[in-house]
Amino acid sequence: MSCWRGGEETRILVAPDSGAIPNSVGRLLSLRHPKSASTTCYLLNDGLLRELHWFKQPYSSWFLGDYVCEDGRLYTATPVDPVFVLLPIFEEARMKKGNDPGKFRQLDEILFVNGHPEYCHLISIAENCMQLVCDTKEIGSSKFFRLDDSKVLAWLHCKEKGKSESKTKNTGKQQAKKNKVETESRNIKEMFSRVTRSKRN
């Protein structure tokens, strides 16, 4: 948990401590939410992107040493796959019309988003992760990207499959636990039955 004091405001943020890794600097970014397109705050830290959420109970505050923070909100940083955040940007950038797959463009062009200049901080992340869902071309030292529908669908399928497998594993564990409880319950009942029969005899 970190405390940030800036000017007159203090905030409590639950996130990995960037101070634990040398030369690591966290950066707050205002980006478009992939679903609503509304401006949302993200934390970029150690090459990982996290979405910020906040929670506040009425009449809450924080005690920080000998200081009282009146704003009792708790901010959390939740990991998010940057592909989800970047998909709408890459979709717009290819300027697809009808059956035309659209244009190849360089990352600095794609991530130049009016009103959201902080997308430029995602260039290194985008270069690594967006190759999963894009066709790429290299001309000299320049690399060009274009979103590919079939790759996006394959990526989404893998994501959904991963969730399904995770759910199946959890369901399997729950079923095993339930079976164990039922077995133990039967064993206890049988034990009491034997004790009761032996007392009668």
Rank of each mutant, 00 (worst) to 15 (best):
S2N: 06
E8H: 14
E9C: 15
I12S: 00
V14H: 00
G19M: 09
G19A: 06
G19S: 04
L29E: 03
K35G: 12
S36V: 10
T39Q: 15
Y42S: 09
L44K: 06
N45I: 13
L49H: 08
L52D: 13
Q57F: 05
P58M: 05
S60M: 08
S61D: 13
F63H: 12
D66M: 12
V68M: 14
E70V: 15
Y75T: 15
T78W: 12
V80I: 14
V80N: 05
V80T: 12
V80L: 08
L86V: 02
E92W: 04
K96V: 15
K96S: 14
D100L: 13
K103C: 13
D108R: 13
E109A: 10
L111M: 01
V113S: 03
V113E: 03
E118T: 12
L122M: 03
S124T: 09
S124R: 05
S124E: 01
Q131K: 07
L132R: 03
K137C: 04
E138W: 00
S142Q: 11
K143Y: 02
K143E: 04
D148H: 10
L153R: 13
T168S: 10
K173I: 10
Q174D: 03
Q174M: 11
A176Q: 08
K180P: 00
E182I: 09
T183W: 00
S185G: 01
N187Q: 11
N187A: 04
E190Q: 00
